[in-house]
Nucleic acid binder design. Structure first.
Length: 489
RNA sequence: GCCCCCAUCGUCUAGAGGCCUAGGACACCUCCCUUUCACGGAGGCGGCAGGGGUUCGAAUCCCCUUGGGGGUACCA
């Protein structure tokens, strides 16, 4: 058996899409599982929408996901070039050979003529398709078209009717009638550039691709492409079509509807770990044989099997991704976590704290995070500026008599808190509470929590207390008490 | 319209005719731990789209219906 060679072939018309990433992931896993090669190729035949910035984005984020390729436009390889725009001549040459062999022909129909054809078909309730009229144009007519300045495209002659069938590695047997392919397909646009379906086939042949793994939106393209392989006299590769990823309304994930959250870049910048996204994407239509939800890339490679990839579409669920991300975030050692947290920490003014204190803050919140960008909000109360207590829920608690009593007690004893660690701080708060008739619990701690953080919930209060230090604690309690007086008067 | 694909808890799935009283995970709910939140632990709720076959036996095989999705470009 020849070496397995698979490819991911994104078009640089947008930044790396979730769906493309998952297709890349399947290809990657399949290649690595079979000791094969994974190739990156850019399908940039769309002259109008392709952009260099997108190419960079795609390359960066595939790398970010640790889906590394063995050959590609950035690193080369012996089957290049790996961009379609660099192969224009080659495509044209092959198409012309097909014309010479009478397997293809020049078609002089104008877009306007085709639009009219389509409208007529629609009106009479027929399936809309090209009527293959160009097949029957005589030499003489062709010369007349040339003389009138028409520039032809090249179309492939399709046997009709005929059943095209292949054994899909994910879906099983698929059969499509050539009659339903919309008429003789274009190979070369009149601009001279190859059309997607032709370029793909030529490239997959040139690059000795053995397995084409892609989304099921390509199923009809596959039928057309098989016809092209046959015309070129080549055997076609194995095909595997995976179901698409949907949103909660069972619609295809689209930039238009979902904004930046269809792009891998968004997850990277929001502080999702590549391991988490990899794991989530992999498990959403494939389950390892041991049934585990959490698995590493290596484990996935060892166990991957196209046959076990789900035939039905999966709905993208951010909540579940969050669960995976939380898991991987908690697994990070403190140093790595700190390193990854830095960009989000930098958004806060925490210059007054030393690195031990920053470290302490991070361990405080590490376990409860969905993504790293939540750090900014989670730690914002550490910024040395006055807090805003003007919220009904806070006021209700602060206005209780017991609240001002407790806060005053802490204030009166503030000096005793100096240089205590978290455990000692807690013990002191407890004893102050007990000596003055408070049970330790919500009644005792909530007013302090609100005074120090202006929040109802958060991490361990005594640790917050020690990080803030007595000076800041004193200021905040005074502020909270002042507010209390204000509302009472 | 025409063609193709798909159908198990709200979501992701396990299931290859008897191991199924349909298993797991996320979410949700209850309880425990706990000053609160989170983490962790113990439970709970919840599903084979419908109808016909085939079979001793169907979530599983076949057919129909319904529903969902994709495609139908000189886009990729």
């Amino acid at each position: 058996m020849p070496q397995v060679r698979v490819r991911i072939a994104p078009s640089p018309t947008g930044s790396l899409h979730l769906g493309t990433a998952r297709t890349a992931l399947y290809n990657y896993l399949y290649a690595k599982h079979n000791n094969g090669k994974f190739v990156l190729r850019l399908e940039d035949t769309d002259e109008e929408r392709s952009q260099e910035a997108y190419t960079q984005d795609i390359i960066n984020h595939l790398k970010w996901l640790n889906l590394t390729w063995d050959e590609g436009p950035d690193i080369g390889g012996s089957y290049g070039p790996y961009c379609q725009t660099q192969k224009e001549e080659h495509y044209r040459k092959l198409a012309n050979e097909l014309v010479a062999q009478k397997k293809a022909y020049f078609c002089y129909a104008t877009p306007e003529e085709l639009t009219i054809l389509k409208e007529e078909q629609l009106k009479s309730g027929k399936a809309s398709r090209y009527d293959n009229r160009g097949r029957y144009v005589s030499e003489k007519e062709a010369q007349a078209y040339e003389a009138s300045g028409r520039i032809p495209c090249i179309r492939l002659i399709v046997d009709e009717p005929r059943v095209i069938t292949w054994d899909d590695l994910i879906k099983g047997t698929i059969a499509i009638n050539s009659l339903d392919l919309g008429g003789d397909p274009i190979l070369i646009k009149s601009s001279g550039m190859a059309v997607y379906n032709f370029a793909v086939v030529v490239d997959d042949i040139d690059m000795a691709i053995t397995h084409v793994i892609r989304g099921e939106d390509h199923i009809h393209n596959t039928a057309k492409q098989i016809l092209i392989y046959e015309a070129l006299g080549k055997t076609y590769p194995e095909f595997a079509h995976s179901a698409l990823i949907f949103d909660a309304e069972k619609q295809k994930l689209s930039k238009r509807k979902h904004g930046e959250f269809v792009h891998i870049s968004k997850y990277a910048s929001t502080g999702y770990l590549p391991e988490a996204l990899f794991n989530y994407l992999a498990q959403m239509s494939w389950t390892p044989s041991n049934g585990q939800e959490i698995f590493s890339q290596t484990e996935a490679i060892n166990d991957f099997d196209l046959n076990k990839v789900s035939k039905s579409p999966a709905i993208f669920d951010l909540t579940k991704l969050n669960w995976f991300n939380n898991h991987y975030l908690r697994q990070l050692d403190n140093e790595t976590f700190k390193l990854k947290a830095m960009p989000y920490l930098d958004l806060l003014n925490l210059n007054s704290y030393d690195s031990n204190e920053i470290h302490e803050m991070l361990t405080l919140i590490k376990d409860g995070l969905n993504n790293l960008s939540e750090i900014t909000q989670a730690l914002s109360f550490f910024e040395p500026k006055p807090l805003d207590y003007e919220k009904l829920e806070f006021m209700e608690i602060l206005n209780q008599d017991s609240a001002s009593k407790i806060l005053n007690l802490i204030l009166n004893n503030i000096a005793s808190f100096k240089n205590l660690d978290a455990k000692e701080t807690k013990a002191l708060i407890d004893s102050i509470g007990i000596n003055n008739g408070f049970k330790k619990g919500k009644e005792l701690y909530m007013p302090i929590r609100i005074a120090l953080t202006a929040r109802l919930h958060g991490p361990d209060l005594s640790r917050i207390f020690t990080i803030l230090k007595t000076q800041q604690v004193q200021t905040r309690i005074k502020n909270a008490l002042a507010l209390n007086l204000q509302t009472k008067s």
